[in-house]
Amino acid sequence: MKRHAINKPWEAYLFLLPWLIGLLCFTVIPMVLSLYFSFTRYDMAKSPVWIGLGNYVAMAKDPRVLKSIKVTATYVFLGIPFQLAFALLLAVVLKKPRFGVRFYRTVYYLPSLFGGSVAVALLWRQVFNKEGIINRLLALVSIQGKNWIATPDTALYTLILLSVWQFGASMVIFLGGLQQISQDIYEAAAIDGASKFRAFFTITLPLLTPMVFFNLVMTVINAFQAFTPSYIISGGTGSPVDSTLFYTLYLYINGFKQFKMGYASAMAWVLLAIIGLITALMFGAAKKWVYYDD
């Protein structure tokens, strides 16, 4: 018996209409315009002036662009491995339902809930200040702390610490993955005499790699776009000496402080290219280490 279609095709497009309009008006057209602006000089007061690859050439020579890429890359590639490692470790430790575990999970998740807020960024600024609580605790053991936020060598690390601190959300994702692994496999392994340690590396970790991979991709994409901590902690400047100048912050300064909309658009497209390239690399490397059932 031929199955009847559940709906008329036009009905489906009717339900998709808001999304289709949104896709066109808030994504496709803006992207086309943005690409066009990136080849122009445009200050919003006068009409855009075509300058070809001028913005991209200027970017390649702009030391602050290179510096901001370096700062952002350090933030992403130093912070995320630690973030995911902590998330995995705590997920394994808090996997078994036992007394207090639900409460502990909540405790470790809370930084992720609050971490993106302006309030916590402001708090971070105080915590790592010259008179901040970290230095006062260090003073108890007779260590003379410095102003971590205002020292070029350490300012970025306080931001990285802020991102590692928020490992809780990844931990929750891993917990979800761990709970899907059938208990039978572990029992079979135990009968065969495998230690818990060995079971982790030969069973848990391989089965969890698809989830780790997905998490890695999404976290990297998001981290490249981080803005609030850099803006709040550096007071909107990327100081000291550009050591916390995130790429997005420099883009913001160009576009919305100096009204170099063309230059900022070019920066946005380079960001897209960087994220696209790194995502493609991660997908390429995934074949080597991500375990798929089928």
Binding site: A5, I6, N7, P9, E11, A12, Y13, F15, L16, W19, L23, F26, T27, I29, P30, M31, L33, S34, F37, I221, F224, Q225, T248, L251, G255, F256, M261, A264, S265, M267, A268, W269, L271, L272, I275, G276, T279
Partner: peptide, 29 residues
Amino acid sequence: LEFRLNKILFSVMMLTLMLPFHVRLIPQY
């Protein structure tokens, strides 16, 4: 729902998830 472009449009939607919002930001503003 069943319609011919279902799979393609869904992939387009997933692709937009990966776009940094900065490529839309300035024209939108």
